[in-house]
């Protein structure tokens, strides 16, 4: 039998965290599919012309109301425009708005949460009261208030949605900063003579950032939904811009006769959100702390 050596060496460390995140797709077909979906949609947004040679804005009147076929994947609308081309070109609008909204939420939340959590006292009190208030108005209504103030357009939608989510990010960031700040290893750093301008970037930020990024991943799907909902309500780019939500709103008038006009763009939104949510769960499990 083995006798313990004076220096027990534990089994080799598991692969690094990032490595684990990227290994998961290989094991789960759902995750692989989600990655493919998001890569495809990203491709639509970046180089729409590779995916559809048709124009999203003009169509042949002779081609009106064509149901989906090998010629028109998603069918055509009342002006003969190819819906697939409109969805592909709309990806850029919808995803840009989503990205902008998340950047605003992330940036604002990280800064406010950091200030509240690290410096505390009155800054903390003021920020957290403001967070409490913004979280006491239903999010969609708050976004609508901001849209009222800012006016109509995809950019405005993005700012409105992003600003609405700042509160949630602030809360998570603050909680993380407080958690890390109370960790014995941060106190140990103080004992080792580290000053706050070293502790903040070297100790607190890297540890607190993981959960906040996980929240951003989780928020992605929600923001895509919110952007398309506001587009559906008519607050996005004015027509004929092919934003996803407004595509559905346009198709609503032909609900009884041309099902594809509402169903296929909506399905695109649903699949993108589903894929994003699936991936965010992987991030949450592997990337966030513990």
């Amino acid at each position: 039998m083995t006798t313990p050596s004076p220096l027990p060496v534990e089994p080799a460390e598991e692969p690094a965290r990032l490595h684990r995140v990227f290994r998961v797709p290989l094991r789960s077909p759902g995750v692989t599919l989600s990655v493919l979906v998001l890569v495809l949609v990203l491709g639509w947004a970046l180089v729409p012309d590779w995916f559809s040679s048709r124009s999203p804005l003009t169509g042949l009147p002779a081609d009106r109301f064509q149901p989906p076929s090998s010629h028109h994947f998603f069918g055509t609308d009342h002006m003969g425009r190819d819906i697939y081309a409109r969805v592909v070109h709309g990806a850029a609008l919808s995803l840009r708005a989503t990205a902008l909204a998340i950047l605003i939420a992330l940036g604002g939340g990280v800064i406010l949460g950091l200030v509240a959590g690290f410096f505390g006292s009155w800054a903390d009190a003021v920020i957290m009261r403001a967070v409490e208030v913004t979280m006491s108005v239903p999010p969609l209504l708050l976004s609508l208030t901001l849209v009222t103030a800012l006016g109509v357009g995809t950019g405005q939608i993005a700012v409105a949605i992003g600003a609405t989510s700042v509160a949630a990010f602030t809360r998570v960031m603050r909680a993380e900063v407080l958690r890390v700040r109370a960790a014995p290893y941060v106190e140990a750093a103080i004992l080792c003579g580290a000053r706050w301008w070293r502790i903040l970037p070297r100790y607190i930020l890297p540890s607190a950032f993981g959960p906040v990024l996980a929240l951003a991943a989780l928020d992605f799907g929600l923001v895509v939904l919110a952007v398309s909902s506001l587009g559906f309500l008519g607050y996005g780019e004015p027509p004929p811009a092919p934003e996803w939500g407004s595509l559905v709103a346009d198709g609503r008038n032909y609900l009884a006769t041309a099902w594809w006009l509402t169903t296929l763009p909506s399905l695109t939104v649903a699949v993108v959100v589903l894929a994003a949510n699936r991936l965010s769960r992987v991030f949450e499990a592997e990337g966030g702390h513990r």
Binding site: A183, P184, Y185, E187, A188, L191, G193, S207
Partner: peptide, 22 residues
């Protein structure tokens, strides 16, 4: 206080928590 900590130091109870995992 920084100078004090050059002369007097602390060893914590839990070595899992007192070392920065990064």
């Amino acid at each position: 206080r920084r100078a004090l900590h050059r002369r007097i130091q602390l060893v914590y109870q839990n070595p899992y928590a007192s070392l920065n995992p990064r």
